[in-house]
Design a binder for these strands. Structure first.
Lengths: 115, 115
DNA sequence: TTCGTAGTTTGACAATCGTCGTAGTACGAC
DNA sequence: GTCGTACTACGACGATTGTCAAACTACGAA
């Protein structure tokens, strides 16, 4: 967390990489974890925006935070606050622009893996 | 190395996963490394089959062996011997069958990253 | 058979990763 | 204000990963 500009404590202003700076290896390694893959799958199939709490992950709260952070810093999801709830949504358009077809293929594969 | 059936020393009969057993997370994490990504890129763009030695990787021999093994065990490449040379080729059709569009998208992204 | 080439195996190492519990912070409701 | 909820931060831990050098194996050629 390098530059937290204005007054608020860090963590309240999540940093997102610009689309042009999203790196392939980072995205792939972000997606290469079962917990994070299931988050991404849930975001894609379920509701577009979801709070962390809605995911019901098989890990502790702090581990959840960690995984969401990895996804956000990789450029896979965008996060913002809605009250105390951390909402997340997939950066579908950004990813499609940067790596055409990649997210679609991964989501298809993940869907097949589960259903 | 569980079951090496006939007499030969292990390592000479590389084990490849069946297409149906290729796992998404394993493939993604295999591709999430710059060295392995460059191997895959070289295999896709260059010649279909290449010996390890032809890749000119920025790592030692043993590290090379390690990376090829990860790719092979993930189901991304197929390997066989041609004399003492270990030849490698992408399992394009198998991957397309298992995870349609995935390899293509990754290769496009990798190509863009380099060119 | 001897030599060189190509790759593997082993064991080591530092770095990263996924996990947790505890403590802390921000917000909404009361 | 106080309380509860939702999440983050901070260590800590064991497991995995990427790396290497050294010793070894398999094959082809001289």
């Amino acid at each position: 967390m390098p530059e937290s500009v204005s007054g608020t404590v860090s963590g309240r202003r999540p940093t997102h990489p610009e689309t042009s700076r999203i790196r392939l290896e980072t995205v792939l390694s972000a997606l290469a974890d079962p917990v994070r893959l299931s988050i991404v799958g849930a975001l894609a199939d379920g509701h577009d925006d979801m709070a962390c709490v809605a995911f019901d992950l098989p890990v502790s709260k702090s581990t959840s935070t960690h995984h969401f952070r990895v996804l956000r810093e990789a450029g896979v999801i965008r996060q913002y606050y809605e009250g105390t709830a951390r909402m997340s949504c997939l950066r579908v358009a950004d990813l499609e622009e940067r790596f055409p077809g990649l997210l679609t293929a991964v989501l298809d594969a993940e869907r097949a893996r589960r259903g």
